[in-house]
Design a protein around this nucleic acid. Structure first.
Lengths: 273, 273
DNA sequence: ACAATAGTGTCTGTGAGACAATATCCT
DNA sequence: AGGATATTGTCTCACAGACACTATTGT
């Protein structure tokens, strides 16, 4: 190739962009995968088998595969999720999982080994099977979020048994706040439900994520009044609730991508100042 | 050092984490810096002096400095912004700029040279001086956002003179949507204003960002009714508007971090379905 | 004088939340 | 039968938006 001034310039540029010339930087993807089990919000965690933080719990995650595999960031997140849940990307079970980017964490020292930039993703999943531990994990489980003693500041209260590695308490706290907020103005609560669901089931999702009870009657009317949130199937459940009550009507997720007007959390009285 | 099974295991782990063993990955920071000039929303752009995309416009950005400098991601964003605007981080002028993480872009091929993961930041700035081109830029300017022919999909309409490099049209589109949304439920519009401002000036910010006219009377009453949005200084402007009208009262930003109730955009009729 | 603008008042429709009522189903 | 629950009805208050009005300033 002829070394015109232009190609020479580009080569210099390329050289200046070579990361090998700098300190090594690694890029990982971590996933905050949320689901509802037994009426409580759970997060998917793996127990680390190797140092650092061996024995502690962490969000599922790992390397972004490089240029050769040409793996996009959402792909990497879906792969990590599939590896831990045992669900194949093909089966369509993962297709029902909502996945969105949460934020990126790159503070120096967040990983004691080297500079690691971690792109966190947030997943909303309907009830999934118990996970099986992946290759480099000692264990994996759906863990009730309440059991982790998370504070608003993104730390864990002292005395919590399951300690989170790295800055994963912060990432999880950010993910939870995003989830709570998204339920307000998007129909993503339906992502926690089976394809057909009842309004009380949907209400249970809101109560689990927001951590407070909602008024059944007002919630019902509100959901039906938001255009495109849910659409009726015309069917009802086969039986009433396990403690009595009439059969509930079944609904599907509607075509709205934003709720208008929004379903605001009741506890907004305490204005963040 | 004795090679216990544990340290050996860690060494293996470390080896598996060495990015040099993988394809090289670079991490950059790009900044969507927004300001209001002459009543129109402007974004800070630099014209590229070197290939690829030489001659095209791009968001200011560059490498995250590695382990040795221990540069955090927000620091890197502030540094890039300072380099292009000529404002020193010390002066406090940059301290009045609101900076928040926007999203991370890492699609393979988004940079033709190598795998580049870019963490984008969003900046809200009061009126700043004209930029001076940084080291590797041919030019730098505050550019009216409207002149870029951005579509909702994050592309540029054909026939637009200033073409954006890489996927920066997408990043900018995402930043604009975030900005529009943030004005609804946070008091960040005040970040575009001088320390003391009038309600009509604040309204001009909303009109520039949302791209639509607001009803002056209703806006006024609404802003004053949201607790903590603005607080009165007791002063008024020295003169009325340049086309007549009484002097306006001056306000400072209040202590609220969320607007409750929110100031919703009028054009939400077209529900995104 | 005239036009433009800051700021206030008034009215109306919508919607959220408290509360009540009714019908249906489980044990 | 008795208790729980799904669903609908009613009432009230807050608020967004339309419109009107007054006061103050620049040209």
């Amino acid at each position: 190739m002829k070394r015109t001034p232009d190609t020479q310039r580009e080569e210099e540029f390329l050289a200046s962009y070579d990361p090998r010339a700098y300190d090594p930087v690694a890029v990982t993807v971590d996933v905050v995968a949320l689901t509802i089990r037994d009426g409580a919000l759970h997060v998917l965690l793996v127990r680390r088998g190797a140092p650092p933080f061996a024995g502690m719990w962490a969000l599922p995650g790992g390397f972004v595969r490089g240029v050769r595999e040409a793996e996009d960031l959402p792909q990497a997140a879906a792969r990590e999720l599939a590896e831990e849940t045992g669900l194949s990307t093909e089966e369509g079970a993962l297709a029902r999982v909502h996945l969105e980017q949460l934020a990126t964490y790159g503070a120096p020292g967040r990983d004691p080994r080297m500079r690691v930039i971690s792109v966190a993703y947030l997943a909303f999943a309907p009830e999934l099977p118990d996970p099986r531990a992946g290759s480099d994990a000692a264990d994996a489980a759906w863990v009730p979020v309440d059991s982790l003693g998370l504070t608003e500041a993104g730390t864990q209260r002292p005395g919590t048994t399951r300690k989170l590695a790295f800055d994963h308490a912060q990432i999880l706290a950010d993910g939870l706040e995003r989830a709570r907020s998204k339920l307000e103005y998007t129909p993503l609560a339906t992502a926690f439900c089976a394809p057909e669901f009842t309004i009380p089931e949907l209400r249970a999702v809101y109560e689990a994520v927001w951590g407070e009870e909602l008024h059944a009657g007002n919630f019902h009317r509100k959901v039906l009044s938001v255009p495109g949130f849910v659409e009726s199937t015309g069917e009802t459940t086969e039986r009433g609730g396990r403690r009595g009550g009439p059969r509930a009507r079944l609904y599907r997720a509607g075509d709205a991508r934003l709720l208008h007007p929004a379903l605001l959390r009741p506890s907004r009285e305490e204005q963040v100042r």
